[in-house]
Design a protein around this nucleic acid. Sequence first.
DNA 1: CGCATTATCTAGTGGTCGCTACAGAAATGA
DNA 2: TCATTTCTGTAGCGACCACTAGATAATGCG
Lengths: 176, 176
Amino acid sequence: MAFWEHGYEATSVADLTRVMDIGAPSLYAAFGDKRSLFEEVVQEYGTRYGSFAERALAEEPTARAGIERMLREAAVEYTAPGRPHGCLVIHAAANCSTPEVEQSLRERRNANIAAFESRIRADVAAGVLPEGTDAAALARHAGAVIQGMSQQARDGASREELESLAEISLAVWPRT
Amino acid sequence: MAFWEHGYEATSVADLTRVMDIGAPSLYAAFGDKRSLFEEVVQEYGTRYGSFAERALAEEPTARAGIERMLREAAVEYTAPGRPHGCLVIHAAANCSTPEVEQSLRERRNANIAAFESRIRADVAAGVLPEGTDAAALARHAGAVIQGMSQQARDGASREELESLAEISLAVWPRT
DNA sequence: CGCATTATCTAGTGGTCGCTACAGAAATGA
DNA sequence: TCATTTCTGTAGCGACCACTAGATAATGCG
């Protein structure tokens, strides 16, 4: 939660020991160092809060339906009361002076866009989407919309505002 | 440049004195403190690098043409060689523990989206865009695309990739 | 109970942060 | 040329950073 809200670098070990209500030595005994704790937090975040994206992509019958559901759920997730707004993976390592941490989350973001693209390509191959569809651009656009939604959630946008943003963004898909 | 690349907080005064090649006391005599120097840098950035957005919006005859040009120019600006990728206003105050700095850039971002919206509303009022156009959603979408482009530029996307992203995003506009 | 082991707390490590007192250098005016 | 003023470089301020050694408390086991 602290990493999520304030990012990797702006969250001090003193902050962590306070919110976890343990002493610093216990933290280091349990997790090794701050970096390792952060990696575990990222993984936990991925399974608990960030999994809606791949679930939507896997469960819906088409790429377009998957990304539509993903964006709609993102509007809800990113503005959920009682937890930090936006996405940890997108923001927590911004302006981080530990290159490994920054790189780790960067790879996650790029992997997500690559997953969009391959899902779209599969639909093109299956004839669900027209032949000339620019899968890479469509994937990058979905990624940009999600990243922008996360940013705007942090900047105070409401769930409704993000939902109408998500909905209008679906107009980029080829008309079938 | 240093603030642009590493953000407000991750750029230390020692970094600044090194790249500016002056002593710390000279820096404080000239700018007051780190915050004031940052504000001046933001203003300088706005007039030198960030002005393409409002220029595009002001010079093009329609909202759609303005935002199209803005997005295309953003693809070039955000990947220009020899300077940091992405937008200072979008990234430099991320995860910043000085609330005033974070708030200052947040207001700039929200003001940009508000400017998009009022430009779109003007076109709706003038009959250039259809009556039922959701100006707020269209504006937020353009903001999300620009923010996502900036993020992806930082994550290594090329100019061409951002250009095709920008182009495909234009499909959200009502067909005339 | 007595002892060994584990966990936790206190206190402090060296380092860096933003920022500044102070002394010496450079520039200015007469 | 000298006195005064402005600037700059050194050196260091207290605060906080991630991290840890050593003392103390809690626990498991015979």
